[in-house]
Design a protein around this nucleic acid. Sequence first.
DNA 1: TAGGATACCTACCCATGAGTATGATTGAGC
DNA 2: GCTCAATCATACTCATGGGTAGGTATCCTA
Lengths: 239, 239
Amino acid sequence: MNSRRRTPAATGKPAAAASPWRASRERLRDRALKRDAVIQAAAREFNRKGYHNTSLDDIAARLEVTKPTVYYYVTSKEQLLFECFVAGVEQIHAAFRDVRTLPVPARERLNAVLRHYGEAVASEFGWCMVRAEDQDLSPAMSRHIKALKSEIDHGIRRLIREGVQDGSIEPCDAKMTAFALAGALNWIAHWYREDRTLTGAQIAQAFVTIFEGGLRPRGGPAPVSSSVRTRRTRGASAR
Amino acid sequence: MNSRRRTPAATGKPAAAASPWRASRERLRDRALKRDAVIQAAAREFNRKGYHNTSLDDIAARLEVTKPTVYYYVTSKEQLLFECFVAGVEQIHAAFRDVRTLPVPARERLNAVLRHYGEAVASEFGWCMVRAEDQDLSPAMSRHIKALKSEIDHGIRRLIREGVQDGSIEPCDAKMTAFALAGALNWIAHWYREDRTLTGAQIAQAFVTIFEGGLRPRGGPAPVSSSVRTRRTRGASAR
DNA sequence: TAGGATACCTACCCATGAGTATGATTGAGC
DNA sequence: GCTCAATCATACTCATGGGTAGGTATCCTA
């Protein structure tokens, strides 16, 4: 971005291990690390208090620096939110990439993606990814984010369709099923706070089990007839 | 709330049709109507732009009045959000009440509740109910809302447990299942915007169908064996 | 028709918080 | 030792928006 002079190779030196620019490069790496720390701190604060209830002073305080220092690493609060967002979404995209070549039925690939999905939503970037309002971002950034989200949505739909084709998934409406799956997982970001006994992947696995099995009894007396409701239609009158 | 004098019956009059207080009562009714209009307008704006991106001037403008007029009907912006919230949650509580005495298996009662749930989330109060951050509310109001949400959550869990008992629902983890169901439905508030071809109840019904049937093939060759994946493990190499 | 309640407006206050101008300090390289 | 860039702090500016003070028109009751 800034027109820092591109010194290294220009001098013709063989780029030895102990290059005189090593320190400089280290400093650059430090900068990247610090920048990441800023973004992570922002994610944590957004997660705790919401975007609008978090001031840049808060974020700076959490890092034990001052606001201008934060601005030294990012250009605006909006960009901070955007970066947090992308960091979260990137985890899910990685899940799709990992799974693409697995030689298993589509349903199992889908399950693997969903476990990573759950992990991502339960991570500290989960809030930004799921709960951030696109109205808080500029039109350009909002479009960018919508595109990323859409990619994920269509990735899930594609896995569902593939599963229907290879017989590993019961024929269903791919769009609606994707919405239901994504919704259940996204919602983790809302309640995963107090009860942290399970990891995101474990929760996702539990959801997958529920979705796969279905709520209607399987082995039993087939479609529930009206003979069942002899009693027990209300669970004890006490409340 | 305010200590308005309780005039009507105190005078001993037989409450004739043309009571001199009729106008007064009419005015009160008007006031209630207007207040509802304010809350509804707020809900719509919050829904469109988010809580923090909506100013009270915006809400007033939408009603073609000025900000102090809005304050004539509500005491604060926070209260507006709270009222919107309660309006949404109340729809769901009503669903539970309606369903309580139905003489059908718990699964069907659950389905009926979920359809109302979907309707509520897709309504104009859906955003407030689902996406509003409790950090935006005072501790007291936040507690109140959490209690209301918890009631709904436990209502769903109870129906699931009853369904498992009366045999209409496959044995499952009631807590996790309730989270999955509520998450899928709540998420409607995020995407129900562009594509309004379906009503909230129809979406909920589609979700119920998915949840009931399950993704794993039913009639087929039972648990998916690895014989299926002959080809079609990747959907065309293009992209 | 006076007196009061209702309903609404104009014109303000002021806290908050995003973003910046400016300058001090530090350390690397020459 | 000098220079220059990187880094960070102090101390601002300024727009936004929640909330209010105080006034006015209207309608109802007595």
